[in-house]
């Protein structure tokens, strides 16, 4: 079966730089930690969403990518409400898992933190994006060794073919210690830039 799908918008965040549809929109000092970088971007864009500071780094990264992407895509609320969100990465929530583990390693100083524990699930990032944009569509979080364009294409096509979603927000959002890498893109039948796993892989590797 052939379904012609298009890429509406894509966003890349890596090396202290944010680009939308291949055009760099933010570039910061490479000496910053990720959370310092994220805070600068938040202030510069005046997001006015205090919950941002409660998020772990993975959710912050996914949140930022989705903010830039939705700003560019500018979708109607009724379309937004049914967007499917399919995100993936290699490390799941291990970056935060390690932080939580530290709160329970010392038996003499044993204070497990609920605010850290709640982020020890990678799909919390999907929840954060859904809350911010009031998206009540399909959800799935996949884990693979590297950006898996085949898996994401197959699942996106399945959601659209099975009439579960008209638009699918896909992405690879990984945070592991001081490394981070975000690539998010919106796929639908409408639009002009053809989507295929080869095209998306090419965008991922060249942006």
């Amino acid at each position: 079966m052939k379904t012609n799908l298009n890429i509406i918008t894509f966003c890349r965040i890596k090396n202290h730089s944010i680009s939308i549809n291949g055009k760099e929109v933010i570039q910061k000092d490479s000496q910053l930690t990720f959370s310092e970088f994220a805070k600068l971007v938040y202030k510069e864009k005046a997001f006015a969403y205090p919950k941002f500071f409660k998020m772990d780094n993975l959710s912050k990264l996914g949140f930022l990518a989705s903010e830039f992407l939705f700003e560019k895509a500018d979708l109607d609320a009724h379309i937004k409400e049914n967007i499917g969100i399919v995100l993936s990465n290699k490390s799941a929530s291990l970056d935060t898992d390690r932080k939580y583990q530290e709160t329970i390693n010392d038996k003499a100083n044993y204070f497990p933190s609920p605010a850290v524990f709640v982020y020890t699930l990678a799909n919390i990032m999907i929840g954060e994006i859904s809350i911010k944009h009031q998206i009540k569509g399909e959800n799935a979080f996949f884990v693979s060794d590297k950006f898996n364009e085949l898996l994401l294409e197959q699942y996106t096509v399945s959601l659209i073919q099975n009439k579960k979603s008209s638009h699918v927000l896909c992405g690879w959002i990984d945070v592991d210690k001081d490394k981070y890498d975000a690539f998010m893109y919106l796929v639908a039948k409408e639009g002009t830039q053809n989507y295929s796993k080869e095209i998306i892989k090419n965008i991922y590797t060249t942006n």
Partner: peptide, 11 residues
């Protein structure tokens, strides 16, 4: 099948 989000609270 269906798998939808509350868009309400993370926990």
């Amino acid at each position: 099948d269906g798998s939808c989000n509350d868009a309400n609270h993370i926990s």
